[in-house]
Nucleic acid binder design. Structure first.
Lengths: 152, 152
DNA sequence: CAATATCACCGTACTTTTTGCGGCATCCGA
DNA sequence: TCGGATGCCGCAAAAAGTACGGTGATATTG
């Protein structure tokens, strides 16, 4: 079994904080030789526990400083498969969840500014997805992660 | 001014997809010498455009496969500063936004399972933050990022 | 308009890190 | 108790990252 033990967890934590740390450096913290740390990381990646090495970027630098949530009820006749496809492709959509409650989907957007919301909604509408929707703006975010551009 | 030109953007994209790509490899794609790519990355990090090198982890491996949104209205007498402090510290909270609309905060949680929601709400309550709340479960997520553990 | 300063890039030499692999101890199952 | 696996180690080779002086283009200024 691929268990992810205490040491793996510590390694993951260190990599999450700074994935450029050297194997020797990490090895020091977990009391393992560099080659052993390497082997563990290799296994974590191979088993899919670590999905990818990446960078976290300042949203403002990418013109995506504005965070917006949109509750969506799809049209009765909407092609739900096509909608999911659209959601996965559109770079403005950071998250999209099928949710409990009165609405069917919750979409999280990252946009340049609030004026871009209108364009997004009109895109949804012209693709015949949109029944009703409700938009919520994030005014400030005590806890927020940076952006990580979607994989190609 | 720190502009982030076309080339920087491409570099960022490549690093986002795989931050372990070699400078030589990246250099090939943007037609720059390794040392030049290095210099650009150094500047992107120094200027804060790239916030950190990190890893994206499978939520399930960290026992955080369940995504939950909680609308929160703070108690009238709640210490808002303390609440923000709490939100920033609690590892269960992935995001916390002050939002427009009927509720004051929108919190995104990553938990082991739905049963952990109750515990979270009771924590909020016993810290005297909670006025009213409404919980929304994510059933499935067409678009979802992996977890990136908060920095220490 | 010419002299000069600045900037980004390049190539090379140097250092550090990663990677591959044989060998060894330990733990488990037969 | 006897394999057999598993995880770790250390070393050597390969690769990657880093530092830096030099160069040409572009911008600045007298």
């Amino acid at each position: 079994m691929s268990s992810v033990d205490k040491i793996d967890l510590k390694i993951i934590e260190m990599l999450a904080a700074d994935s450029r740390r050297s194997l020797a450096d990490i090895g020091n913290s977990v009391d393992l030789a560099p080659s052993s740390v390497n082997e563990r990381i290799r296994r974590l990646v191979a088993s899919g526990v670590i999905r990818r090495f990446t960078v976290e970027v300042d949203p403002a630098a990418l013109d995506r400083a504005t965070q917006i949530y949109v509750w969506v009820a799809l049209r009765e006749d909407a092609d739900e498969g096509a909608f999911r496809e659209f959601a996965g492709t559109d770079p403005r959509i950071e998250e999209c969840h099928h949710v409990t409650g009165a609405w069917s989907y919750l979409i999280k957007l990252r946009l340049k500014d609030v004026s871009a919301v209108e364009e997004f909604l009109s895109d949804l509408k012209s693709a015949n997805f949109l029944g009703r929707s409700e938009t919520v703006l994030a005014l400030s975010s005590p806890v927020e992660a940076g952006v990580i551009p979607k994989g190609a």
